[in-house]
Write a protein that binds this DNA or RNA. Sequence first.
DNA 1: GTTCTCGGCCG
DNA 2: CGGCCGAGAAC
Length: 263
Amino acid sequence: MERKRTDCPALPPGWKKEEVIRKSGLSAGKSDVYYYSPTGKKFRSKPQLSRYLGNSVDLGCFDFRTGKMMPSKMQKNKQRLRSDNLSLSKGKPDLNTALPIRQTASIFKQPVTKVVNHPNNKVKTDPQRATEQPRQLFWEKRLKGLRSWDVSEEALRTLDLPKGLQSLGPDSTDETLLSAIASALHMSSAPITGQTSSAAEKNPAIWLNTSQPLCKAFTVTDEDIREQELKVHQARRSLEEALMADGLARAAESRRDTQGRAA
DNA sequence: GTTCTCGGCCG
DNA sequence: CGGCCGAGAAC
């Protein structure tokens, strides 16, 4: 049987290629090609392989069947998707596909550290590392001055946070408050309460609860919730309008295309 | 349940 | 025609 898994020099070390001949049916004689990752996961198509490797390997001229890089397969300049040109410019890692990436369901993609097994090394496991990473006190200060900008480099209006949210810590302005809260939401699934110890207000350097943002304890009122619901509603309407406009524009464009070809 | 295999769709 | 993937067969 063709059960041989051969090394594949065109891929990173440890990847294996296998070719299986079909031995019955209408397609007898045809062959299927599979690849195996260093961890043994099986891949049966180029898109599947490409999805897994993300930006770490350019499969543009990779020939799946032979397992070799084919320079002839270059020059296939497909019309790039809009999302390619806009948000994902070259150089920056694309967190949607770049490895290593947490394969958990979260819209906030987070890079992870990949620890690989080396023949002569023992991989240390350090359960403390995951939960007890030392963190700098008041690190949020570094986020000061971060703003979002629209395409014309006009600064976008900052969010108006509810009055109940108040910053805490050295030079407790509101400038890093939003960043602090947003970061806290992304880094832990625990509820965000703010600094509940009143001692933290007097001397945050000593009494700070580092798992909570630099924010005084707060309560969420019914009105806060109602206002938030309204904002979400308005945002959805804006999105709906934008999608409608985009759809119409695309329809007009394709209509113009087909007419242009006919003429 | 997982893995293997071939059919068949679609570009 | 061949790449890709669904789904039944086999385990």
